[in-house]
């Protein structure tokens, strides 16, 4: 498997890797499972209707690791609505992900949307 320069750069970027401490302003969303070969979780902290900080955890291939790192950075400063409207295909193309991995981008999308939907809802912390 070969990886383009963007994948290599994002794979090495781990400043947004990890968790956010539980609080009333923090939500999480996850999708996949290790047994499926991919498991991803996003942590979002919101403030006045925008994402203040985003973090990710991932058990995934380099393309999806890179995609999760990209998405965590991209999410900061955006509204939950923008996150819900995110579409995976342009990112998959930029990363030159092979077609057999496209389904994994849907797992990524599911995790991001689950977290975005929880913003502003009661009982969301750490869920």
């Amino acid at each position: 498997m070969t990886y383009n320069a963007l994948v290599q750069t994002l794979f090495a970027q781990r400043e947004r890797a990890g968790r956010l401490a539980a609080s009333a302003s923090v939500v999480s969303g996850e999708s996949g499972a290790m047994a499926q070969g991919m498991h991803v979780r996003f942590w979002l902290e919101s403030e006045e209707g925008r994402i203040r900080r985003a973090r990710f955890e991932a058990y995934a291939c380099p393309h999806l690791m890179a995609a999760a790192a990209y998405l965590a950075a991209w999410a900061e400063g955006r509204t939950p609505e923008e996150l819900l409207a995110w579409e995976w295909r342009p990112l998959a193309d930029s990363l030159q992900a092979p077609i057999e991995k496209w389904g994994k981008f849907l797992i990524l999308e599911d995790a991001l949307r689950e977290a975005a939907r929880k913003i502003g809802k009661p009982g969301r912390c750490g869920s």
Partner: peptide
């Protein structure tokens, strides 16, 4: 260790 720490628990 960095990759292991990245995996969701």
């Amino acid at each position: 260790p960095a990759l292991q720490a990245l995996a969701p628990r």
